[in-house]
Design a protein around this nucleic acid. Structure first.
Lengths: 227, 227
DNA sequence: AAAATAGTGTCTCTGAGACATTATGCG
DNA sequence: CGCATAATGTCTCAGAGACACTATTTT
């Protein structure tokens, strides 16, 4: 078999959060060519010495940009072709992360010129993105919307402790429709991925809601039925 | 940012079929080091001149090994780390294909020493595989089993024209449980991804079943509920 | 007509969704 | 006590599954 030059490969991470009731994605302004000055997904090269595997490389990128270490992250999809980068045939391992927006207030303020949250409108952001990053963002949003229907994934958009009404609002915001409280709570109860944080309640001028957290060791839960 | 050597990347395809009532995977015996003599997934390098994108590269690999051009294929997952290949940090774009076993009788006979179907037991094959290919096969089988529960995917394991009883048998074989005929047919009808091939019936010594084919332009259909 | 399998109809009972009611905190 | 929201209970109706029945071909 003939030898072929291996294409240049990178890691890119679509970091999504919910801020002010809207889905937002973390973007960085590029300093170097190609696409200098354009907004792009945080990403970089694999560091073979440092990164045990692809997931570790993505975690390193996430931590470098957000300071967050253990949010929800999974491989989204690989994208590779001869057009996405003017330098030639390249490929990227795209990852998909969900973070609680208040978990990273500091980082954002520190470098506001270069890193920013952009609101998702539909499946896009209202600025042209470098490379094929618009397509990658769209794929991530599709994945989120689809998985929200039948998984516990939105819990990762909230801080470690949250109430069931909080969680329901997240589902409603992402799906864009109201849900029945009773049915929602039944579904969460039978999915059994939450545990009450006893003794702690959220202060309010009305009946306070029970706080919950995700049970340790629980990955994303798949519901039997759509939510 | 420092420059890093891009890791070596390859394409590997998990080609699954149903033969003699068992799920089987196409493997090749490696001629070259590393792992010379071991069984491995069909795969290869990206050919930047030839392959428009990753999917095209995977399709080229599939066609080269099976002679089949348009089966079901989708990206499975990327795998990359410093251990899977003794030569160093490498990554592979793993694809996942389903073919009708009778669509490729010729190819198999032509080179029986080097290419063979191996039966899947559990999620494995009963021989050690090169690289981390055992893990990739397991991931493909998991994906198939999970998607079978709520998609039209098993239809791609059958020849272009097939009957509903045929299709039900495929679901039953993969899931390992019997299904109710009436419920199954209702589900297929409402999913609306099949169309009858009028005038053609399968000969038998009893009432012949209606032949169907997958409607053109239909990708994989996701059912509202699990099957 | 018998055999064998394809294909459809019916009945029941679960469980999801809509809605109502009760609970619990604060002022 | 009134208000606001949390949390739970109740009722109804659709639909999934179990099973029975009818249809269509060959021998």
């Amino acid at each position: 078999m003939a030898e072929f030059l291996s294409p240049l490969v990178t890691i890119d991470v679509v970091i999504l959060t919910l801020r002010e009731g809207h889905l937002q994605v973390l973007l960085m302004r590029r300093g170097a060519e190609p696409f200098a000055g354009s907004w792009a997904l945080p990403g970089g090269y694999i560091h073979p010495e440092e990164d045990a595997d692809l997931d570790a490389a993505a975690r390193r990128v996430l931590h470098a940009k957000t300071g967050v270490r253990t949010p929800f992250m999974e491989q989204l999809q690989a994208f590779g072709d001869g057009q996405r980068d003017p330098r030639g045939w390249t490929a990227t391992f795209a990852y998909f992360a969900l973070v609680a927006s208040d978990a990273m207030v500091l980082k954002e303020g520190a470098n506001a010129e270069e890193v920013a949250w952009w609101q998702i409108k539909g499946k896009q952001v209202e600025t042209p993105l470098a490379f094929d990053h618009a397509r990658i963002v769209a794929a991530a949003v599709s994945r989120l919307r689809s998985k929200v229907e039948y998984t516990s994934l939105p819990a990762h958009l909230l801080p470690p402790k949250f109430t069931l009404p909080d969680l329901q609002k997240v589902y409603e915001q992402i799906l864009g429709r109201q849900m029945d409280k009773s049915a929602f709570r039944k579904r969460m109860a039978e999915a059994a991925f939450l545990e009450p944080v006893t003794g702690e309640k959220r202060p309010a001028s009305n009946r306070p809601a029970q706080l919950y957290r995700i049970k340790r060791g629980r990955g994303t839960i798949f519901f039997d039925r759509t939510i």
